[in-house]
Amino acid sequence: DVEEQIRRLEEVLKKNQPVTWNGTTYTDPNEIKKVIEELRKSM
């Protein structure tokens, strides 16, 4: 579920933690925001 994935990513973003997405680890909050944007567009 895309909305659930977005929620999880936003939680990680709030905690300022790195997130691994599709085999890539993002540590930059701006990169994580881009991933969230892409997910929103795909909905």
Rank of each mutant, 00 (worst) to 15 (best):
residue 25 T to I: 12
residue 31 E to R: 01
residue 38 E to D: 12
residue 34 K to D: 05
residue 42 S to L: 13
residue 31 E to H: 03
residue 27 T to R: 04
residue 41 K to N: 12
residue 26 Y to H: 03
residue 20 T to P: 02
residue 11 E to R: 04
residue 14 K to R: 14
residue 18 P to H: 07
residue 9 L to N: 00
residue 10 E to R: 04
residue 22 N to Y: 12
residue 35 V to R: 02
residue 12 V to A: 15
residue 9 L to V: 03
residue 17 Q to P: 05
residue 15 K to Y: 12
residue 15 K to G: 07
residue 41 K to M: 13
residue 18 P to C: 14
residue 20 T to H: 15
residue 24 T to Q: 13
residue 26 Y to T: 02
residue 12 V to R: 13
residue 7 R to P: 01
residue 24 T to E: 14
residue 18 P to N: 12
residue 15 K to S: 15
residue 18 P to S: 13
residue 17 Q to A: 11
residue 15 K to M: 13
residue 23 G to W: 00
residue 32 I to H: 00
residue 21 W to A: 13
residue 43 M to N: 10
residue 22 N to W: 11
residue 40 R to F: 05
residue 41 K to Q: 13
residue 16 N to D: 06
residue 31 E to K: 04
residue 5 Q to I: 15
residue 31 E to G: 03
residue 28 D to S: 05
residue 42 S to V: 09
residue 14 K to Q: 13
residue 3 E to R: 10
residue 36 I to G: 00
residue 42 S to K: 12
residue 32 I to R: 00
residue 15 K to E: 09
residue 3 E to L: 13
residue 18 P to T: 14
residue 8 R to S: 11
residue 31 E to T: 04
residue 23 G to P: 03
residue 22 N to A: 05
residue 35 V to F: 07
residue 43 M to F: 06
residue 40 R to T: 05
residue 20 T to R: 13
residue 9 L to I: 10
residue 15 K to P: 01
residue 35 V to Q: 02
residue 26 Y to G: 01
residue 12 V to F: 15
residue 29 P to Y: 06
residue 16 N to I: 02
residue 13 L to Q: 03
residue 31 E to M: 07
residue 19 V to E: 06
residue 42 S to Y: 09
residue 5 Q to M: 14
residue 4 E to V: 09
residue 35 V to M: 07
residue 6 I to W: 03
residue 33 K to M: 11
residue 16 N to Q: 10
residue 22 N to P: 05
residue 17 Q to G: 10
residue 24 T to Y: 06
residue 37 E to Q: 10
residue 6 I to N: 00
residue 22 N to M: 09
residue 42 S to A: 14
residue 18 P to R: 04
residue 4 E to C: 10
residue 12 V to D: 14
residue 7 R to E: 07
residue 36 I to D: 00
residue 17 Q to L: 15
residue 34 K to S: 08
residue 18 P to F: 04
residue 29 P to C: 05
residue 2 V to I: 14
residue 25 T to L: 13
residue 30 N to R: 11
residue 31 E to P: 02
residue 40 R to L: 07
residue 4 E to M: 10
residue 27 T to W: 10
residue 8 R to Y: 15
residue 16 N to C: 13
residue 25 T to P: 02
residue 28 D to Q: 04
residue 9 L to A: 02
residue 8 R to T: 13
residue 32 I to V: 08
residue 35 V to K: 03
residue 15 K to A: 12
residue 40 R to M: 09
residue 4 E to L: 08
residue 19 V to N: 03
residue 7 R to F: 04
residue 10 E to F: 04
residue 41 K to S: 10
residue 4 E to T: 10
residue 10 E to Y: 04
residue 40 R to K: 12
residue 7 R to T: 05
residue 3 E to C: 14
residue 25 T to R: 02
residue 27 T to G: 04
residue 1 D to V: 10
residue 9 L to R: 00
residue 9 L to C: 02
residue 29 P to A: 09
residue 28 D to L: 03
residue 8 R to I: 14
residue 3 E to D: 06
residue 19 V to K: 00
residue 34 K to H: 09
residue 17 Q to R: 05
residue 23 G to R: 00
residue 20 T to Q: 15
residue 17 Q to T: 09
residue 11 E to I: 07
residue 10 E to T: 10
residue 26 Y to S: 01
residue 11 E to C: 10
residue 20 T to K: 13
residue 4 E to R: 09
residue 36 I to A: 01
residue 37 E to D: 14
residue 23 G to S: 02
residue 9 L to K: 00
residue 20 T to E: 15
residue 14 K to F: 09
residue 29 P to H: 06
residue 17 Q to D: 07
residue 42 S to T: 14
residue 28 D to E: 08
residue 26 Y to N: 01
residue 26 Y to A: 01
residue 14 K to A: 15
residue 19 V to Q: 02
residue 10 E to I: 06
residue 32 I to D: 00
residue 24 T to H: 13
residue 21 W to K: 07
residue 12 V to T: 12
residue 41 K to P: 01
residue 37 E to G: 05
residue 27 T to N: 08
residue 23 G to Q: 02
residue 12 V to I: 12
residue 7 R to V: 05
residue 32 I to A: 03
residue 11 E to S: 06
residue 16 N to K: 13
residue 26 Y to W: 04
residue 36 I to E: 00
residue 36 I to M: 04
residue 8 R to D: 06
residue 37 E to F: 05
residue 35 V to Y: 03
residue 3 E to V: 13
residue 28 D to G: 03
residue 37 E to C: 08
residue 15 K to N: 14
residue 41 K to Y: 08
residue 39 L to R: 00
residue 22 N to R: 03
residue 41 K to D: 08
residue 42 S to E: 10
residue 20 T to F: 15
residue 6 I to K: 01
residue 5 Q to N: 08
residue 43 M to D: 03
residue 42 S to H: 09
residue 1 D to Q: 11
residue 13 L to M: 11
residue 7 R to S: 07
residue 5 Q to T: 14
residue 5 Q to Y: 06
residue 33 K to H: 06
residue 7 R to W: 04
residue 39 L to E: 01
residue 37 E to A: 12
residue 5 Q to G: 05
